[in-house]
Nucleic acid binder design. Structure first.
Lengths: 221, 221
DNA sequence: ATCAGAAAGTAGCAAAAAGATACTAACTAA
DNA sequence: TTAGTTAGTATCTTTTTGCTACTTTCTGAT
C-alpha cells in the first residue's frame, strides 16, 4: 500500500474520541459533554479532538484528556478505530477511540470551548435506556464497557480506578462494578494478595472495624 | 470534537495494513510482499491499501485481503491503529492494522500491482532475527503476534487456522504454535471437548492409528 | 500372520485454583 | 456495655489443571 501514489486517494479527517471512566457512588461513570452545535446540538457526546498533522494518536489523546480534565499522566489506552462512512452526517471522519481511567478523587472536568457543559454519566443507565447519544458514540461506549469488563479479569486495569493507596473493600467494589457481579471477599483477597503490599495506614472514623490501606507492588504485573 | 470546524485541521491519508496469518509446516507464517518502489524498495512489507473516502475500514480490509489472496469470507479483525508522525518518510499516513487468519489449505496469494512478489514468512524467525522490514511493520507484526498468543487462550481464534473439519492432533498443534509451548494431550481434549462435535470421518493411510475429524459446534462460543 | 513402531485416544491420580460458608475482630453510636 | 456494621480470616468443597501411564489401531517390515 504505502508504495501507492497516495494522491489518488482523498484524504480524510481523523479524530480521537475520549472515554474517561471513573467510579462515583459505586457506579461506573463516563465523562460526556453536551454539544453546543449541530449536528446533534444539545445532545450528549464523547469529548474529542481532531488529530493534528504533526501529532501522534497518543499525543492527540493526551491533549484531549488534558483539555477536558486538566489531568496529565493518567492511564489511557487505545480502544478501537471506528470508520463507518456516515458516522458523521457532515463529512467523513474516522475516529480512534481512547479509553482513560481515573480515580474519582482525582477527577476534574469542565465544559470545553464548543460544548455547553461536561458531566459524569452513569454508564449502565445510559446503555440500558434508549437515550439518544450523538454520532455512533453509544456503540463506542458499549464497546468500551465490554472491553473494561474483559480486561479486569486478566489485567490489573482496575487499579487505575483507585488511588495509589487503597483499601481492599474499595478495590473489591471496583472489581464488582466492572464485572457486574458480586465477589466473595475471601477469594478476592487470595487472588490479589500477591499483587499488593501493606501500608502502615488504616481507615478511621467509621462505625465499624477499620480497613488497611494497600498499594500495588512495583515488582510484578 | 466533532463540533469543531474541521477545516482548520489538515486531513491525512489513512491506510489499512494487513496481517494474513496461516500455519504451514508447523510454523506460524505471515503473508508479506516485496516492495518494488522506494521508500524501502526490495524490502519486505505488509500488504495494504489506502482507505477510500466512501469505504469503511472493514471494507478496505476486505478489499485488500481479496486483492492479495483472492479470498473472500475469511476471518479478520481490527488489530490496532498506528499513528506515529514519521512512520512513512514521505508523508503522514496513519495505518489501521487488520489481522486475518486462514488455514493453509485455503491460502493463496500473488504479487500485487506495485510489488515484486508475495511470500509466506516465518514469523518467529523474522521477529527473533534482526532482519529489516519496511516502515514500522516489524513492530506491527510483533504486536499482532502478541495478540494472537493472548487470544488463543480465551477465544476460539485458533479454529480459523484449521479447516472446517479437523483432527484434534492438528488443532492441538495450532494451539501449541500460537502459545509457543507444548500442551498435554489429555488436558487439551478435556478443554475443547465442549466446543466441538464428532464427524463420521477419520484419517487413513498413515502408519498409525487414524484420528477422527471434528467440527466446531454451532451452538456455543 | 505376526510383530515392531508410531501416533491416537483414554483412565485416573495429584496438585492447584476457584467457589462457598462461617466464623472472629475492631470500630462507633446509643 | 451492647447492638450494629463492616473488616478480615479459617476452612471446607468443588472444579480445573498438570501429569503419567496406559490401551488402541493403524502401516510396513519381517
Amino acid at each position: 500500500m504505502e508504495g501507492y501514489d497516495s494522491s489518488q486517494y482523498e484524504k480524510l479527517s481523523l479524530a480521537v474520541d475520549l472515554l474517561v471512566f471513573t467510579i462515583e457512588d459505586d457506579r461506573l461513570k463516563l465523562l460526556m459533554v453536551e454539544r453546543s452545535e449541530d449536528p446533534f446540538a444539545k445532545m450528549s457526546a464523547l469529548p474529542g479532538v481532531f488529530v493534528g498533522i504533526k501529532e501522534t494518536l497518543d499525543e492527540a489523546a493526551e491533549r484531549g484528556i488534558e483539555e477536558e480534565t486538566g489531568l496529565k499522566d493518567i492511564y489511557f489506552e487505545q480502544l478501537y478505530t471506528f470508520g463507518e462512512v456516515d458516522r458523521d452526517p457532515r463529512m467523513r471522519i474516522v475516529s480512534v477511540a481512547y479509553m482513560a481511567l481515573v480515580p474519582i478523587e482525582k477527577m476534574n472536568y469542565h465544559a470545553g470551548e464548543r460544548t455547553l457543559s461536561a458531566r459524569l454519566v452513569d454508564v449502565e443507565d445510559l446503555l440500558s435506556s434508549d437515550t439518544k447519544v450523538a454520532f455512533d458514540h453509544k456503540r463506542i461506549i458499549a464497546y468500551a464497557r465490554q472491553r473494561l469488563a474483559n480486561k479486569v479479569e486478566y489485567t490489573g486495569i482496575a487499579f487505575h480506578l483507585v488511588e495509589e493507596e487503597f483499601t481492599l473493600p474499595k478495590l473489591q467494589k471496583v472489581y464488582e462494578i466492572l464485572l457486574g457481579k458480586p465477589l466473595y471477599k475471601a477469594n478476592f483477597r487470595k487472588k490479589i494478595a500477591p499483587l499488593i503490599e501493606e501500608t502502615d495506614f488504616i481507615t478511621s472514623g467509621e462505625a465499624h472495624r477499620p480497613s488497611r490501606f494497600y498499594r500495588l507492588k512495583k515488582t510484578e504485573e
